[in-house]
Simulated assay, not measured.
Amino acid sequence: MRIAVVDYKKEPRKGSLELMESISRHGHEPVYLKTPMLDAVLTPGGIKVYQSTEEVSVNAAILRGIGFITSLETLMKRIGVLEALASQIPVINDPSKSLIARDKWRCLLHLYLKGLPVPETLVTENPFTAMRYVKDKHIVVYKPLMGSLGLGSTLVQDPDLAFNVTRGLMNIGLPSYYQVYLEKPGYDYRVFVVGEEVIGAMKRVNPYSWKTNVAQGAGGVPVSEKEEPEVYELGLKAVKILGLEYAGVDIAYDQGTERYYILEVNAFPQWEGLRSATGVNPPDYIVKYVIGKIKK
């Protein structure tokens, strides 16, 4: 069988390369597809997807990224082409559902509407709204609406700073996203789900910063379901609600409210930190899951 890995870089990034290596280890042929190079055509004979001049012919695809896109038209084109591909073969994760997870606000909105616990969160284009929110909450976290690895996330305690941040973003046509600061006990959790199974979970501990992303210097400590059953349960529920088939779920415990909260769900998760902490190799689980989908 031919199994594609879909990403946006000219050459496969580390995670995509590891998936391709796993596909080969499982006795199948890996194919690398680049989202900017994919086109789709509606013909009398059916839907055809091309990479440059070559028609795409694969049995399934694993989506790893669509790229950082500045125009709505390009984003919709890439999602639309991937949807065309998904109408013919299994694409994991589903492109449209991956787009919801990529947008932090829409991700939390979907979870909130299904009754899952998420932190108090504001999305706005109004600098006065942002200023009032910080005055009311005293300390919040500004996050890029679309982003990962903790990059760009900033603690905000000054209402005037929130005003200036939101006004600056408004002037270039971007919204602002603020989340109430949680009193974490020095760590949070990353839960990795494939299919209907948590394949591994870890505490992300960073003694030097409030940020607990592995990319920001945090270390991982493995966590079992017996130790943290609620964390495992929330991870599975979040992935199911969003309709994803593999994902990393970030969950925090707030000492102030004594509750767990889902911070975000990543449809294109990294896994180096989790693998180092738990010994679990997510690419093998993902590839086995995809092979099972093809055989059904």
Rank of each mutant, 00 (worst) to 15 (best):
E228V: 03
E228K: 07
P229H: 01
E230N: 13
V231F: 04
Y232M: 04
Y232T: 04
Y232I: 07
E233R: 15
L234C: 06
G235A: 11
G235L: 11
A238C: 00
A238P: 01
V239H: 02
I241K: 03
I241W: 05
I241N: 03
I241H: 06
I241C: 04
L242K: 02
L244S: 05
L244G: 02
E245W: 01
E245H: 09
E245Y: 04
Y246W: 13
A247N: 09
A247D: 10
A247V: 05
G248K: 10
V249T: 13
D250F: 08
I251R: 03
I251G: 05
I251D: 03
A252S: 14
A252W: 11
A252F: 11
D254P: 00
Q255M: 14
G256W: 09
G256T: 15
T257D: 04
T257R: 03
E258L: 08
E258K: 15
R259C: 02
V265Y: 05
V265L: 04
A267Q: 12
F268P: 00
F268K: 05
P269W: 11
P269A: 10
P269H: 14
Q270C: 00
Q270E: 15
Q270M: 14
W271D: 05
W271A: 14
G273N: 01
G273C: 03
G273A: 02
L274F: 11
L274D: 11
L274M: 08
R275P: 00
S276T: 11
S276G: 00
T278H: 08
T278K: 06
T278R: 02
G279H: 04
V280M: 08
N281W: 15
P282D: 12
P283Y: 13
P283F: 13
D284T: 09
D284E: 15
I286M: 06
V287W: 12
K288P: 00
V290L: 07
V290K: 07
I291E: 10
G292H: 13
G292T: 11
